[in-house]
Design a protein around this nucleic acid. Structure first.
Lengths: 123, 123
DNA sequence: CTCAGAATTGATAACAATTATCATTTTATA
DNA sequence: TATAAAATGATAATTGTTATCAATTCTGAG
């Protein structure tokens, strides 16, 4: 992976100016901030960054993927009303992977949890 | 929801002849078994059945949704090698929803867990 | 039973999200 | 600084799913 200015901008924007954005949301931000942006380049770099473990792709929230600069083990909650996405700490499910490995006899590499419901502000 | 023969066939096939299929997989099965099938009708009925809590749509496994006739609380594991989908019992994460509710101050209605790794047979 | 209105269907167009293509430009390095 | 690999931008293509709409099928009241 060579250096690239676009990738730097994308990562920086994801890290500092967006929380769990979709590619489209990030694209709008980039356009507004830097004028220059190609959707193809954005997708390519998001995939590259995710493949290299620098960011995390969050699937299962909506039909479009969201992206997270926080790669520490944690989970997500989406409010059915306001559609906001909240982080949930890994502490809510201690020993989860070990339990599942024992049950399946499998090697588990990752585990994603998506909660749905009504958030504190909306209820 | 009126009675419909197509819906009956779809539900029966999902229940008895397919495990966690995608819409496409189910479509092939239906075509083979009954000759008659419309992709639109299939999607419509899968959505209807899921909206009525009769089946469950599983998102986050692949870009296409999978469907499950088993609506008891349980989770899923997908093998990175063979792509097979396994059930994981709810017992691997006792008190998960309560923990997350406490942390967020939210009302949680549902919770989906997707594990990825290498299954017993592939490792 | 039968008729009207609601629900369902099938065929296909449309749509949204994402990826592929490819000629041009940028980056790293010998 | 020349060269090869990597990255880019514009856009076409692909995939999965939903919308449209005329025709068919259900259902319940009369």
């Amino acid at each position: 992976m060579n250096y690239s200015r676009q990738r730097e901008i994308i990562l920086e924007t994801l890290t500092n100016n967006a929380v769990h954005p979709t590619a489209e949301e990030l694209y709008s931000l980039l356009e507004k901030e830097y004028g220059t942006a190609s959707l193809a380049t954005l997708y390519r770099n998001l995939n590259l960054l995710a493949a290299n473990g620098i960011i995390k792709k969050i699937d299962g929230l909506e039909q479009s993927s969201h992206y997270d600069h926080n790669i520490d083990e944690h989970y997500h909650f989406m409010c059915n009303k306001c559609k906001k996405v909240y982080d949930v700490s890994a502490a809510v499910a201690p020993g989860l992977i070990e339990q599942a490995e024992k049950e399946l006899g499998a090697d588990i590499e990752s585990c994603d949890i998506i909660f749905h419901g009504t958030c504190k502000d909306c209820k």
